[in-house]
C-alpha cells in the first residue's frame, strides 16, 4: 500500500478519535456563569482574539469590574481564536442570543460582516453595545440598526502619536508607515491619523506597507524599507508588536538613533524601549478600561438611565 500521511492502517485510531470527541465537546463548552439571583442582567462580552495581549487585558479588566460589582450584573466572556475568523464570532453572537443574555458588548472582528447577526440579536430582544472597532456607519444605516459605540478615536490617537514624532524630525524628512491588516477599520484609521500628522508637519511619506499586526512580518518590511531608503528618518507602526519588529530591524541595520520608531497600544514589552528612546512615542488606549466603559454604558442603557449614544474613550500619548 502506498504510504501516505493522510491514511493510516490499524484500527486503534478510530478509538482514539472517538475518545477525543467528548474531550472536544467539553472544551467547546463555555465556562458556566456563576449562579445567582436571576434578577441580575446578564452581559455577554464578545471579543476578538483572547490570545492577543490587548484583548486579554480588556477581558481581564471586565472580569475585575464584575468581581467588584457582582450584585449588579453577570458576565460571560468569549473570544475567537483567530482575529480574522468572522464565522466563529458570528456563531458566538448566535450562541449568546440563544442563551438569552440581556445585552451583548462586542468588539467586532469586522465592521460590516457582523451587522446582520447583530440585527437579528436586537430583533430577538438583546441590546447591543459596540466597543473597540466601530461598526460601519453605512452598513448600520442600511440595516436600520442603531448601535451605540463606546471606544477610542483611532485616527485622532494616531495623529497625536504622529505629531509627537514630527516634533523630533526636520521638515521634509523621509518617513514610512507600517500599517496593520489593510482590511481592519482601526488599522485604516491609524494609518489615516499618521498620514494626517505627517502631511500637516510637511514630512515626506516614501512608503506605506502592511506588517499585518505581526512582529516578524513588520521586521521584514522594515528591513526592506531601511535598505531601500538609506535616508529614512522614521517608521510609524500601527501597533506596538510591529514597532518591536521595526526596532529590531533598525538595530540590525545599525541605524539606532538615526531612524525614529513609534507604535500604538502601549503594551508592556514596549515600555523599556520608550524609556531608553528606541521608541519615540506610542498611545495608551487603557485597554483594561475599554470593555468596562462598554459594560457601564450597557447597564445604563438597560436601566433606561442613558440614551444609546456614542461615547469616545480617552487615548493617552506615551513618550519618554
Amino acid at each position: 500500500m502506498k504510504n501516505s500521511p493522510f491514511v493510516s492502517g490499524g484500527r486503534r485510531p478510530c478509538w482514539l478519535v472517538l475518545g477525543l470527541v467528548p474531550l472536544l465537546l467539553l472544551s467547546a463548552c463555555k465556562r458556566d456563569e456563576s449562579g445567582g439571583a436571576p434578577a441580575r442582567p446578564r452581559v455577554a462580552l464578545i471579543m476578538k482574539s483572547l490570545a492577543n495581549e490587548f484583548f486579554l487585558t480588556m477581558a481581564d479588566g471586565a472580569r475585575k469590574h464584575q468581581a467588584t460589582h457582582a450584585a449588579d450584573y453577570e458576565l460571560i466572556v468569549n473570544g475567537i481564536k483567530n482575529e480574522t475568523d468572522l464565522a466563529e464570532q458570528v456563531g458566538l453572537v448566535e450562541q449568546m442570543v440563544a442563551q438569552q443574555v440581556n445585552i451583548i458588548v462586542i468588539a467586532p472582528a469586522d465592521s460590516k460582516a457582523l451587522v446582520p447577526v447583530l440585527k437579528r440579536a436586537q430583533a430577538a430582544g438583546v441590546r447591543v453595545v459596540n466597543i473597540d472597532n466601530k461598526l460601519d456607519a453605512d452598513a448600520l444605516k442600511e440595516a436600520g440598526l442603531i448601535v451605540p459605540f463606546v471606544g477610542p478615536d483611532n485616527r485622532a490617537g494616531a495623529r497625536r502619536v504622529g505629531e509627537a514624532l514630527a516634533k523630533q524630525l526636520p521638515a521634509g524628512a523621509k518617513v514610512a508607515i507600517i500599517e496593520g491588516l489593510t482590511t481592519a477599520f482601526n488599522g485604516q484609521q491609524r494609518r489615516a491619523g499618521f498620514e494626517d500628522a505627517m502631511k500637516a508637519a510637511g514630512m515626506n511619506i516614501v512608503s506605506v506597507q502592511s506588517g499585518q499586526w505581526e512582529i516578524d512580518k513588520a521586521n521584514n518590511v522594515a528591513a526592506a524599507m531601511l535598505s531601500e531608503h538609506p535616508d529614512l528618518q522614521a517608521l510609524l507602526c500601527g501597533n506596538d508588536s510591529m514597532a518591536l519588529g521595526a526596532v529590531a530591524a533598525v538595530q540590525a541595520a545599525g541605524r539606532t538613533g538615526k531612524v525614529l520608531v513609534c507604535g500604538y497600544d502601549g503594551i508592556g514589552a514596549i515600555r523599556p524601549m520608550v524609556a531608553d528612546g528606541r521608541v519615540t512615542a506610542t498611545a495608551d488606549q487603557h485597554a483594561d478600561q475599554l470593555a468596562v466603559f462598554g459594560i457601564e454604558a450597557a447597564l445604563k442603557i438597560l436601566k433606561g438611565e442613558a440614551p444609546p449614544a456614542d461615547q469616545t474613550t480617552v487615548v493617552d500619548l506615551v513618550t519618554k
Partner: peptide, 15 residues
C-alpha cells in the same frame, strides 16, 4: 534565532 533577531519572545510567533 527568532528570539535573537527580534529581541522578544512572542506567543504568536511562527503562525
Amino acid at each position: 534565532c527568532y528570539a535573537a533577531r527580534l529581541g522578544a519572545s512572542d506567543p504568536n510567533a511562527g503562525a
